[in-house]
Amino acid sequence: MEKAIRKYWPIFVLPTLLAFIFGFIIPFVEGVYLAFCQFTTVKDATFIGLSNFTKVFADSTFTHAFWYNCAFVVVSTLVINAGGLAVALILTKAIRGTNAFRTVFFMPNLIGGIVLGYIWQILLNCALSLLEKPLLRLDATAGFWGLVILMAWQQIGYMMIIYIAGLQSIPDTLTEAAEIDGATPWQTFWKVKFPMLMPSLTICLFLTITNSFKLFDQNMALTGGEPNHASELLAYNIYYTFYGRSGPQWRGIGQAKAVIFCLIVVAISLIQLRSTRRKEVQQ
């Protein structure tokens, strides 16, 4: 059978392969190469070795964006997963209107990042001005918490769906046995349900961490990096280096930043997957 299928490779493989080469492989390889070049367009690149990378670390906006992004990843991952799990626990109780609640919580996920960013910019600016605090574009700390609130609002529903699926797959016999043995709901959760939720937790942590690292649209629409690059996450910092700065050196530096960014995201995905996989309970 394998032999027969093999002959049909132009029909099965070629369309996707061509698109994949065009849409990923060539741009990726070229992108890695350009990180070692000075260029303004793809064609006028001259090889300059590692000097882009040394300039990246001399650019204070990048190191700031890195730490700002790390803080954002930690806080948003905690908030989103705690929120998503809490909502999932409440909505798996036999309460009225569970389906309607799920519908509401999941809704923000379908709205695009740009739209979300503008909605929350208006809302938060109004709230800040009523509290007589500086607006989002003047205060990077407000921008940070604004972004956390926005992401929590958007992603709690998504993680809730995954946690609900995880909770529903736990056999009732386990929780009932714990109850009969006299466990409090609190103990049942931490000793029985939580270990069984590890696969869902792995997935949700992975999704929230990579989402928070790759965040772009919301960052751009909510604060646009204001004030003075202080609220830039890495993705937006790279974008700005490419398209917002003038000078022949910046595109090369931007591409070098992108390579570093890519390495960070890939490394985190690998480490994170490996470490949580080990803690999963075997059923």
Binding site: F24, G31, K214, Y239, A258, V265
Partner: peptide
């Protein structure tokens, strides 16, 4: 390719 961020290939 699933993990690679768009900024990596955005310009090219």
């Amino acid at each position: 390719s699933m993990v690679v961020p768009f900024q990596m290939v955005m310009f090219t």
